[in-house]
Computed example of a mutant assay.
Amino acid sequence: MSKTQYHVQTLAETFNPKLNALNAVRLLLAISVIVWHSFPLTGQPRPAPAVTQLLGEGGVDGFFAISGFLIVSSWMRRPQWWAYLKARALRILPAFWVCLIVTAVVIAPLGVLLSHQAFPHTYVADAASYVVKNAGLRITEVGIAGTPTNVPYPGVWNGSLWTLWWEFLCYLGVLALGLTRLIRLRLTMPAIFVACLMGVVLADMGAVNNFYLVNGARFGLMFAAGALIYQFQHLVPARWSVVASAAGLTAAASLLPDYRVIAALPLAYLVITIGARVKVRRLRLSNDVSYGTYIYAFPLQQLLASAGLYVIGVPLFAIAATAITLAVASLSWYAIEKPAMRLRRSRARTSEAARAVLDRV
């Protein structure tokens, strides 16, 4: 056999930034979060521990892994702090702020009406507080004037937004590593991954129970796993057989008290490599509704629960919630997210044009 017949295509050779299915993978992860939330929001008991780990935490963990891969890639391609920070802020904040306002002004009032409850006399003030106090990404208020009520999971309008603060902290961590040039050192990401892994293990043992340390270790571990996949993409094979092995290892790890101890890297490899290898143009999803799906799903599920639809059971409730969430997420994409991204690109083009003019002077 010729030498080329032994060549194994790597992830770096497989991944095409303009033709991949990572947006489709993220959308599936967001839908998995809808399915998971359909259990507590309909008052049903949690499924088996293994399913709880994969369905209840795997969706968000997969998001962080993909973010680690893409965000580190973004910095390495264009290591400019202002452009980087502006791009991250424009991608997350405008749609997030609108979601807070829509929840306070539209979704929550509809929920109160559908649950046949009187509006609390403090509703207007509490709604304003909900928007203002949560606007900095760190969620400090989850309900509005005690609503929603008469639902299986009362007092919480959006139980998903709290993870965005951790996501943005990871972005700032990449920025700090980039500005100090530590991100270019070969041992930096492995060291961060090991440190976060140790934090997860200590948390599982009960040696660490601080909220910030526990969640910082969890989300940092998954983000660092994606970053590691990016760093060693020239060595990582992109084969379906390895994908299958990673899926099997992740599933087996779900039998442990914390599947991430074993499955952090396999899960990161799984979601990133599937996204890289699937090159069906219809699955490219240039219109990325995954973020809108994630931020709107919980309040819309609570709206359905306020209408009494929690009695239809988890499968039908999840299907109904997914349908309405995708519709609202599409509006978020076309009305808020896509224009914000155009703003980012238009400013970049303006800067490049200005530099070109100066170069000719």
Rank of each mutant, 00 (worst) to 15 (best):
V194G: 01
W81V: 15
P109V: 01
P120E: 09
A48R: 09
A335P: 02
V314P: 00
F219L: 13
L113A: 14
G173N: 07
R77E: 12
Y310G: 04
P339G: 06
D61Q: 08
R345P: 00
Q44H: 13
Y259P: 00
D288S: 12
L175Q: 03
Y296N: 09
V33H: 05
D258S: 11
T322V: 00
L285D: 00
V51Y: 04
A128D: 03
A335M: 13
T122N: 15
T149K: 15
A108E: 02
P257C: 08
T147V: 04
M76W: 00
E167D: 10
W333Y: 13
A348Q: 14
A195I: 10
T140D: 12
L358G: 09
V142I: 12
L19E: 13
A297L: 08
S38T: 00
A217C: 12
R277S: 14
L309S: 07
S330F: 03
I192A: 09
H121T: 15
L316K: 12
P154S: 03
A244I: 10
S241W: 14
Y123L: 02
F39L: 06
Y269D: 04
A252V: 12
V124H: 04
T52G: 15
L235N: 06
V201Y: 11
S254P: 01
A125P: 00
I92D: 09
R347L: 15
K3H: 13
Y123W: 03
T250N: 07
P315L: 12
A348E: 13
F63P: 07
F219M: 12
V51R: 02
F193H: 05
I139T: 13
R91Y: 04
T122G: 02
Q9M: 15
A207H: 11
P47H: 02
A135W: 10
